[in-house]
Design a protein around this nucleic acid. Structure first.
Length: 261
DNA sequence: ATGGTTGCATGGCAA
């Protein structure tokens, strides 16, 4: 089974890009973030025609929003109002064999990395803390967590560790929380499972400053994690870097992990 | 230090 996560940054604007991603990744399950549309406006017919008749959608008008598209049947899994908000930042799906997939879109956090002066950053930290509390409640099982976590945890997940230590997405407050979340349910980073820690790897490049592709000032914000029972099932991991160079690109590229289930 | 781009919606905010 191939599972892909992609922050599509408007599903309606990027339907052609979605078709290209489907072809390039050969995804069986495709988790989207930032669909930027209400549930009723989601392009269900077009997505079904791409080979994904099964879909879960949790959208908002204009902002946020997540979806899980699948070639195989799935049922809605447990979710909640994270941080008491109905934001469209999480969807869960249950597949055959007791497999559970969680698709997250963690708050970006704004510009100022100070929770006292920046409500968005406070929200982001609280959201990560709540994810850790949630992870503590999980029974052992076959579980996959994917999404735009908006945190680049490792030194080689950013183009300059030193220059980004005070930049939202790579501050110790965030990277410490992500590591705590990861160890809480013994999550395994399925991408770093295949790519050595000392190798630079990015999934997002800003729209600003036209830094793509020359300067390659990227960050690894998009992740696929699995629980220990799935570790030995991991086959491969791929970052579709070239998608950043497509016409009318998202600022994020798809990340795909294959499991032998 | 500042400003840089994109999407939604048509203001200015979110990212």
């Amino acid at each position: 089974m191939r599972i892909t996560t992609w922050n599509i940054n408007s599903v309606r604007l990027r339907l052609a890009g979605l078709a290209r991603v489907v072809e390039a990744t050969r995804a069986d399950v495709l988790c989207l973030q930032e669909i930027k549309v209400e549930d009723t406006g989601f392009p269900r017919a077009a997505v079904a025609a791409m080979g994904f008749p099964h879909m879960l959608v949790r959208g908002n008008k204009g902002y946020h929003g997540v979806a899980i598209l699948s070639r195989v049947p799935l049922k809605p899994g447990p979710t909640r109002a994270w941080c008491g908000k109905e934001d469209g930042r999480h969807l869960a799906a249950k597949l055959k064999g007791g497999l559970e997939i969680h698709n997250f879109y963690v708050p970006a956090g704004g510009d100022e990395p100070d929770p006292r002066t920046n409500d968005k950053f406070a929200h982001k930290l609280a959201f990560l803390d709540e994810m850790t509390a949630w992870a503590k409640t999980l029974a052992p099982g076959r579980r996959i967590l994917v999404g735009d976590l908006n945190v680049a945890p490792g030194e080689n997940d950013v183009w300059s560790h030193k220059q980004l230590l005070d930049v939202v997405s790579h501050t110790p407050a965030e990277t410490d929380r992500l590591r705590t979340l990861m160890t809480t349910a013994k999550w395994i980073d399925a991408v770093r499972h295949f790519v050595p820690e000392d190798e630079r790897l990015y999934t997002w490049w800003s729209y600003r400053n036209r830094v793509w592709p020359g300067a390659d000032r990227g960050r690894r914000l998009d992740h696929v994690w699995v629980t220990p029972p799935l570790a030995k099932k991991l086959v491969s991991a791929e970052v579709l870097r070239e998608a950043r160079g497509w016409s009318s690109p998202s600022d994020h590229v798809p990340v795909t992990v294959e499991l032998a289930l």
